[in-house]
Design a binder for these strands. Structure first.
Length: 118
DNA sequence: AGCTTGACCGACC
DNA sequence: TGGTCGGCCAAGC
């Protein structure tokens, strides 16, 4: 018998939960692309990771999971850039004066290594 | 069952 | 540097 007075507990799909875990592993000042996360996870694809982040990413460092071209999350550019500046994440300025992540330097592959070093 | 949509990606031009 | 195109894979309608 379910107690109808209890608050509804949002259930997070298992896959999404794994995505969130990976997001939490990314060290400050570094980022992973949606595709990187999917690849490391060995399941799903970039779009699945994107969906998971869109729906449940609010509780984790969402700004460290980005598009592979380094464009800050649309709709949250301000907040994201604030974090990047605070974490000293490598940025680059485009000709139009827009800030984008310098993926060459900011991309983190540490999680892809089993052991350890670089 | 089929079509559209999405916090995507890589190749091309 | 920047725009377009096709592919991708699951969720919604």
């Amino acid at each position: 018998m379910s107690n109808e007075s209890l608050p509804e507990i949002p259930t997070i799909p298992d896959y999404a939960e794994r995505v969130l875990e990976v997001a939490e592993l990314i060290p400050p000042g570094r980022v992973m692309s949606y595709g990187d996360v999917a690849e490391w996870l060995g399941e799903g694809g970039p779009r699945q990771v994107g969906r998971a982040m869109a729906l449940y990413g609010g509780a984790v460092p969402w700004w460290r999971v980005v598009r592979s071209d380094g464009v800050p999350l649309v709709g949250h550019e301000l907040r994201a850039l604030e974090h990047y500046r605070a974490e000293a994440t490598p940025l680059r300025t485009t000709g139009a004066g827009e800030h984008r992540l310098d993926m060459r330097r900011a991309r983190w592959d540490g999680a892809a290594r089993t052991g350890g070093h670089r």
